[in-house]
Amino acid sequence: MDVTFWGVRGSIPSPGPGTVRYGGNTACVSVRLPSGELIILDCGTGARNLGISLLAGPFGKGKGSATLLLSHAHWDHIQGFPFFGPFYVPGNSFTVYGGRSGERLLEDVLERQMAAQFFPVQSFRNMGARMEMRPMGEDRDVRVGSATLRAHANPHGPTPALAFRIEAGGKSLAYASDAGYGSDGPPQAAVDLYRGVDLLIHDSTFTPEDRALRLERGLSSLEDAVDCAARAGVKKLALFHYDQDYSDHDVDELVARGRRRLAEHAATGIEVIGAAEGLTVSL
């Protein structure tokens, strides 16, 4: 299983010299299963570069298919959707899974982003590829090709965000972007979802100090991420979804603090990395 980061930023893309190492694109991660199947986690602006790389293969000829899992419909998780090249090649086929954000069905949410006031293509039906939208069941296994998927809704300010677990070929990954746990930490169901995975990609938007000032945002600090990793006994933790104002230097500091925090847990067997655009983790 190869996991590649295309966008690691939260809230809004943050171009500029201060973010070139970790990257300024919003959330998007691709997962290539041992069978060759492709799963895409979230569709922030990082999806544009993923799309460009995919067009060099079967997706460029209208022979590609992939599963897209959307954690929730905040802009930084869907704003790459109109700019994902493979959507414009007839013959490609996508199954899109998401939650029921604010009681609106996924299709309606994505269609609103494409509407004429906002985007010249006016409807995702004008894009060309075949797209099927499906609501994601929560807290139960869903079989998609050779993978077993499971989703759990984490609290995230006024709307929930889905966390996903993907298992295939004896390897496992959990993706928990945008998690705003209460004061008693992650619920057991979330910890169970992350349990023992080879790689946990976890929201690490803030330092604990910055998070304390912005609790209503429903996002995690690096300590929340590290505590989850330690409780769930994961093998590797990738910090993810950095605040738009954090420079590369600030993210370096988050990672260093994460490693110190693990040492406090005496969970030094867990490796902590900072997710960065272009980085591939092979499991």
Partner: peptide
């Protein structure tokens, strides 16, 4: 100064990706 969507990264550092 950018059209369509923001493009962060080393290729747009000078003119800007916003």
């Amino acid at each position: 100064v950018r059209g369509s969507l923001p493009v962060p990264g080393p290729r747009t550092e000078r003119y800007g990706g916003n």
